[in-house]
Design a protein around this nucleic acid. Structure first.
Length: 431
RNA sequence: UCCGAAAUAGCUCAGCGGUAGAGCGGGUGGCUGUUAACCACUAGGUCGGGGGUUCGAAUCCCUCUUUCGGAGCCA
């Protein structure tokens, strides 16, 4: 008897196999019981036909409930009514555990109930699909970076200071050393890594104590930061585009089933795999003003602005050369205009908003120091960061991708909370 | 933090001043091809908490709590 995953059943037509999984749904009709079995790799219909089975086996099949765990043996065959679909003629059913009163029914539920039952909700087919896309996006990012000489370099999560600003940090006591904070970005640490390894990236959870309440924010989310020595602004943008397009292609190739379950518009994703647009912040403001936005030349894009900017564009849009006042202290000044910095955001199409923030970094010790002093940063705490500009400083650039934002876009779902197994939001820490 | 909305059966909701309702889920029974299967019967409620108006409140008013949606901030 061979154990088989549901995804591989087609290779075993006509021979008896064993499936191990859970009951997604059952329907019965007197002498017939239909069991939808899922096993993590997929789901398939299994049929118990009374005349072919012992009394005990048929009764077991009949009393199965939603989400009971079962081991079913049987013979796969083609579905009598549907092409390219297989079902299993049941020979025996072993009940592993009978689930009673499974709370998530086959009808609709509200978000509060589903989030309270998140530990069970992840079994639902749409959640299964999103989490598999998350896995594929994660895999594709690492694959692209690995193929482009980036070395994984993990940044610390417990840090003595903020990366940018201090209003959005989770604070905790750290033994006798005073306060420590949960990292909101590994970027500054990553900059040390390039001086040893050339190109590096980290990928882990980061934390923002913002009291945000939108469908694009989590208090705990996964971010990939990449940093590369001797890479300047233009090449930085090229790397970002290459990475995102690799992710799109990989998801389209590996997640056809998942995208179908989510009813994702495949054509929109395919269309995004083409050369991205690049606009300066000034050009973007000019454009948005013609569309009726109240944005100013020294202002950031609002949520509405992001939608307006990309609604006519099938591809993501880079917004580059930002006013220095609204970007971080470490970004390098634009040599063509000292009021601008060589930073870029990447705005996804279809209204999915910002998914990347990146920039060339300031590599001159004096300029960086004066910028930090101007922002009243505690210089002594950042001596290690300034040291990088004293011992073999090089031009370098980097960027950060919000994994959940990217997964939201790929999946085409409405709310970011479904893209991480256990979302952490301002009013939710359970389960 | 600001603006808006909501809270009634396990779940999704209707009821909006006069005996607490439906569908799904649970239970029992029926059906040889079902696809959120179907049919019949059945159990299941401090109408979010507190206060008020009224002969009478799920329904109107006040207050608290919780949640949802949006904004700002950002990935």
């Amino acid at each position: 008897m061979q154990d088989v995953f549901v995804k591989d059943v087609a290779q075993h037509i006509g021979s008896e196999i064993r499936l191990k999984g859970w009951v997604r749904n059952t329907r019965s009709s007197g002498k017939l019981v239909f069991i939808i079995l899922r096993d993590g790799t997929g789901e398939m219909q299994c049929i118990a036909f009374k005349p072919d089975l012992s009394e005990e086996t048929f009764e077991t099949a009949k009393r199965l409930t939603l989400e009971s765990s079962v081991i079913i043996t049987g013979i796969p065959k083609k579905h009598p009514k549907q092409d390219d679909v297989f079902e299993l003629d049941i020979r025996s059913v072993v009940l592993v555990q009978l689930a009673e009163d499974y709370p998530i029914s086959k009808k609709e539920h509200g978000p509060d109930f589903l989030l309270t039952n998140r530990h069970l909700w992840i079994r639902s087919s749409k959640q299964w699909a999103v989490l598999r896309i998350r896995h594929t996006v994660y895999y594709a990012i690492c694959e692209y970076l690995n193929d482009n000489e980036f070395i994984r370099f993990d940044s610390p999560i417990l840090t003595p200071n903020a990366c940018e600003g201090t209003t959005t940090l989770f604070e905790l006591d750290y033994f006798d050393e005073g306060k420590a904070y949960l990292s909101q970005s590994g970027q500054l640490y990553l900059e040390t890594g390039i001086m040893s390894l050339g190109r590096v990236y980290d990928f882990g959870p980061v934390f923002r104590a913002e009291r945000s309440k939108t469908r694009k924010h989590l208090t705990e989310f996964w971010m990939m930061d990449a940093e590369a020595a001797y890479v300047e602004h233009a090449e930085n943008v090229q790397i970002q585009e290459g990475l995102i397009r690799h992710v799109i292609r990989t998801v389209l190739k590996k997640c056809a089933k998942e995208l179908e379950i989510l009813e994702r518009d495949i054509e929109a994703l395919k269309a995004a795999d083409a050369p991205f647009k690049i606009m300066t912040h000034r050009e973007v403001v000019d454009y948005l003003k013609t569309k009726g936005s109240e944005i100013t030349y020294d202002g950031d894009l609002g949520a509405q602005d992001e939608v307006m900017l990309t609604e006519a564009s099938p591809v993501p849009i880079f917004v580059e050369r930002w006013p220095k006042e609204i970007k971080a202290f470490y970004m390098k000044r634009d040599p063509q205009n000292p009021n601008l910095v060589l930073g870029n955001d990447l705005i996804a199409p279809e209204g999915f908003g910002e998914i990347i923030g990146g920039s060339q970094r300031e590599d001159d010790h004096e300029l960086l120091l004066s910028r930090m002093q101007a922002e009243n940063m505690p210089i002594e705490d950042y001596q290690w960061f300034l040291d990088l500009r004293k011992y073999g400083s090089v031009p370098h650039s980097g960027f950060g991708i919000g994994l959940e934002r990217l997964v939201t876009w790929m999946s085409g779902i409405h709310h970011i909370r479904e893209t991480i197994p256990f979302p952490r939001m301002i009013y939710r820490i359970y389960p």
